[in-house]
Amino acid sequence: MAHYDSAMALSDSDVRHVARLARLGLHEDEVAPLRAELETILQHVSAIAELDLAGVPVTSHPLELVNVLADDIPIACATRDDALANAPDRAGDGFRVPPIGA
């Protein structure tokens, strides 16, 4: 993971990399505006870096809960037809998707 702690300067290739990871097809003329927008977001978040957070554990959610676990007992599933009802495409009993890795 890249760190943007001080300068917040993003390069065009950072923007293209993030777009690729998100499977976004960007036009060349979209890169520069998005870079500016992303830099604004990072600057906003970077306010946190000004605080002394040593000793503050990373928080993934605000709840003081641990060990929320479910018993291992099956409950009724969706029917296959319900499951497939929203599929963009189906083939027999399965979800049909475009060929992978083409």
Binding site: A83, A91, G92, D93, G94, F95, R96, V97, P98, P99, I100, G101, A102
Partner: peptide, 16 residues
């Protein structure tokens, strides 16, 4: 795709 391998296959069927 002929031989069941990914390369050149026509589609993929997913079983969840």
């Amino acid at each position: 795709g002929g031989d069941g391998r990914i390369a050149g296959s026509g589609a993929s069927i997913v079983d969840f």
